[in-house]
Design a protein around this nucleic acid. Sequence first.
DNA 1: TCAAAAGTGTTAGATTTACACCCATGA
DNA 2: TCATGGGTGTAAATCTAACACTTTTGA
Lengths: 225, 225
Amino acid sequence: MTTFYKEHTKVFASVDCIIFGFEDNKLKVLIGRRQMDPGRGEWSLYGGFISADESIDDAASRVLNELTGLCSVYMRQVGAFGRVDRDPGERVISIAYYALINVKDYDDRLRKQYQLEWVDIDNMPPMYSDHREMVLQARHIMQTKIKTEPVSFQLLPSLFTLTQLQRLYEAVNGEEVDKRNFRKRIKDMEFIEKTNLIDKSGSKRGAALYRFNNNMYKEDPNFKL
Amino acid sequence: MTTFYKEHTKVFASVDCIIFGFEDNKLKVLIGRRQMDPGRGEWSLYGGFISADESIDDAASRVLNELTGLCSVYMRQVGAFGRVDRDPGERVISIAYYALINVKDYDDRLRKQYQLEWVDIDNMPPMYSDHREMVLQARHIMQTKIKTEPVSFQLLPSLFTLTQLQRLYEAVNGEEVDKRNFRKRIKDMEFIEKTNLIDKSGSKRGAALYRFNNNMYKEDPNFKL
DNA sequence: TCAAAAGTGTTAGATTTACACCCATGA
DNA sequence: TCATGGGTGTAAATCTAACACTTTTGA
């Protein structure tokens, strides 16, 4: 700690975004083909360099917005990845973030324009550098968060059925749960409100639509699944 | 992702070490006076720049070793901190790590030589930049880890009493627990072995010394406090 | 009329919590 | 002999997990 800044080497710093979506009862990740050497053409997360005038968090939001057009998305840091040879070209330290989006909010034309694909987290292709590791770490964080924090709703439409919520929970954790026990726990949480609306898309009978009431949650923030 | 590396700016990247120790039934953090402008003289974590030929993890281990002389210490990443103005001099992104050491393994002369102090985590002085935030985030990680992973033993001597273990647990979580219930849970974990040794330093009667058996833990890694 | 998803309660077992006294010893 | 920390068990309450049938309706 007696040294000076100028004696040290600078590095490139980037962010990589793990964009989670929920579709066909599966947890999916948005990935594309890397457009840049080295590694051009490999499956890769979408990322970008951190510029001099933005925080890391801001860089992550910017990159996500560039790609999806979405703002105010739920994003959290996964961590910094910094193996010396993680980027074959230059020394690049990358900070991974995961984002939770509702697939329906995301314009599918944009997805095609960038040639991105939603891939099942349980069936990812080989990926560039340490990107697979980033995704798996993000999933692990999600698995612990989803049990005690109301993050699921970020991945669902604002109105959702209990079956959707259950399938999401199962997809994140990779294991099935009992329907009756699951619903019992939901009923105990007053901030998951039943509406009068019915979704007929998933069944003939129709299922009640629910909504997450954030104000009510803040009054009594007890979430336990 | 169609841009080139050279169009981007590089930044300084550093690591900051949150060194936890357990002493006088309190969770403590090792901090010193910053030796460097800007911020010279403020209370600060110990850190160092990441050099070109080492991973972030290696940089953290190196810095810890420089300071304490210790190797193979339990260290985990807290996360990257990157507010634009977090370092008043230059743009520096810092990756925080926490380390768990047994205070007795650490040569107190070294502590004095570097003018470091063990401060109670519940009574930290104002600290340089975002260092307080780093410590609090690290503590939060510890609080969740200590419930499901055998990390406590990193902070204790290899032989310890159940009271010590309990006080540690209480110090990390900031709340007291019932002695009988605590010991019942310990008894269920076979990898916490009772030895024939007695520690007479804490009481007249003496307390049985226990030991963490890592091989046994690996056979049946179920930890729950 | 039937296939497919929605919706609903109970019970046994496991886990958690609360709680108070005797023991061994050195000063 | 007494002050100090070490050590121990039980019972009530709560939580968890397992389990199956009826409802609705569009095709």
